[in-house]
Design a protein around this nucleic acid. Structure first.
Lengths: 346, 346
DNA sequence: CTGTTAGCGCCTTCAG
DNA sequence: CTGAAGGCGCTAACAG
């Protein structure tokens, strides 16, 4: 309308300056309005600014805000493999919790590679993430870059006793114990376990829980029935095949994660072994997938929403926080009984 | 060592200034060295700068770089649900392709919600992403914010004829046709389909391919055997149950995505129906999961790595690109035959 | 309550 | 080949 004044899309974005000009105020006021502070603004002025923003189609530039304020509004999420349903489900929940606090997630898939993992950490630190949500490839991540950059870290799932970082996880030992004890109540006496990679504390803890439950029931933890495998479908399949075909066959198997359990079911099916009638199966980290396997999988389910919420709560919020004090939180777990362990729903 | 000169961790980060001081040059030189340009630097000076960087532990601040250069080094990834294995697998591949170009992914999970989706788009634009990798909730996304911000968009999977955005996808019609035709070669004559939500072009195309294959074989596309369901396990389960329990039963079912197929298998198992002997199943978008279902699932598999690579290649690279010319690319597909359709591996 | 202005850390044109 | 200096867009003192 007016003779070339407002110049909205004339190459180069609309800035606070344009808003200030149209509203007839200074740029500071525009900031105060946008951020509701730190200085108060007269209601009338505020309205004028708001109107001007609308009129010129102003959109704050987050990058500039980040540079000036020192807060990026970004959290870095690092997982070993986003295509693992468990991590994907976790990411989904984290995204949810995170958006509530006005933050956005930077996705880092370390592809089970230590070097890539380390690289991601420093890349994220360079980007000034306000916090790191971290699931490591193993239990000895090199988080030095994060600490150097003074970026708060919350370690999830595969937790290590690390004092500079916070953590949130379920009690793996107790949960594995509980679920194995349940197997015992079914009367099974020959127990096997497919454990995860030994470098993972998580795997060792679950193994420990399994062991203690057997010990408690005065059952033997036969070494031949303790087989280590990667936390993958393939790992579970291979381990399962070995368990099924070589030597005496166990009556019940604890697969240390859902992917392994799925692989195990495939192995059992392939060998014509009926689950749970001939082989009972129980698992850990069940996601929605466990509801759709044949048979449906029993196991420990982690409260992902709760974990996500707790983790995000440990990170500095929208407005730069005070100092970060590492905390360690244990979340409760649930045991979901379905047919795979011999349970009869009714 | 020296009397308070270098001051590395003295509150406030190490900047180019520190490097310049130690190297005895100007800050511009430091930039030239870091970016290999745009001005050449004498080799000796370069070495001194590099040494200084090392000495003071300088790490470039990406936020500042982004603001000054106008290139964020960020791509925004928007998917309807990251916990869907197909999207998770896609994200995994995208992360891979993306990191090769030195970019990082911002994760946006729209949770199948249009409003959230729109919000994510503008949030990402405000963050000056260099490009958007987009899978929409339906086939009519509101990408205006991206276009206003002049952010290049590549639409994946659920593609719409949209001329301002690029796209990469497989030929759904052809693939669905091919896979259905395969079912026909098995001799099955009673075909059913579980289609996806009608708003999704993807779903309509697969339905169309299925129809044309039947037509070609002069087989009837019985309306009662066309059942629409969400692209979820639950959707597939419900649709499958309906197909199995009401009226005449089809001999073969095409589940429009992998999740539906998994649900369908669960329904079949629950009703004691043997797959493929009594009911043949074929699907679309098979991921690794299809290798571990009981029975293993046949179906179209999309070349996710190729799709990811093609999509990223369409986006501006590390160094700000020239103008973005929307392109549309079709990727090839593969048909993976496994037992679920009646196929005998040997 | 509002305006002015000096940074945030880096890029890049323009002199030297 | 190198140095000085003006932004990028916004925040937050510091003055009015």
């Amino acid at each position: 309308m007016s003779g070339g004044a407002t110049n909205v899309r004339g190459r180069g974005r609309v800035t606070r300056k344009d808003v200030a000009r149209v509203a007839g105020t200074s740029t500071a006021i525009v900031s105060y309005v946008i951020n509701n502070g730190p200085r108060p603004v007269a209601e009338r002025t505020r309205q004028r600014v708001l109107a001007a923003i609308e009129e010129v189609g102003y959109v704050p530039d987050t990058v500039a805000q980040a540079l000036a304020s020192g807060v990026s509004g970004l959290y870095g999420l690092i997982v070993p493999d986003i295509s693992n349903p468990f991590f994907a489900a976790l990411a989904h929940e984290l995204e949810d919790s995170t958006s509530e606090s006005g933050h956005i997630l930077l996705l880092g898939d370390s592809a089970e590679d230590k070097d890539r993992e380390k690289e991601l950490i420093s890349t994220f630190v360079r980007r000034r993430v306000d916090g790191l949500l971290f699931v490591g490839v193993d239990s000895h991540p090199d988080l030095s870059a994060a600490f150097d950059g003074e970026v708060p870290v919350v370690i999830l799932d595969r937790v290590d006793p690390e004092h500079l970082a916070s953590s949130v996880a379920v009690d793996n030992v107790a949960a594995a114990h509980a679920v194995t004890a349940h197997l015992v109540t079914h009367g099974y006496r020959e127990h096997a376990i497919i454990t995860g990679p030994e470098q993972l504390l998580t795997a060792r803890e679950r193994l420990q829980g399994w062991r203690s439950a057997l010990a408690e029931a005065e059952l033997l933890a036969d070494p031949r029935w303790i087989v280590e495998a990667p936390f993958t479908r393939r790992g579970g399949y291979d381990a399962g095949s070995a368990l099924i075909t070589s030597g005496p066959r166990p009556r019940a198997v604890f697969a240390s994660n859902e992917l392994q359990a799925v692989g195990l079911l495939a192995a059992a099916a392939e060998h014509g072994l009926r689950v749970p009638d001939e082989l009972a199966v129980i698992t850990f980290d069940g996601t929605e997938m466990s509801e759709y396997t044949a048979p449906k999988l029993s196991g420990v389910v982690q409260p992902l929403d709760e974990i996500a919420r707790a983790a995000v709560a440990m990170l500095p919020g929208k407005h730069r926080s005070t100092s970060f004090a590492p905390r360690h939180e244990r979340c409760g777990y649930t045991i979901r009984l379905r047919p795979s362990c011999g349970h009869h729903p009714d």
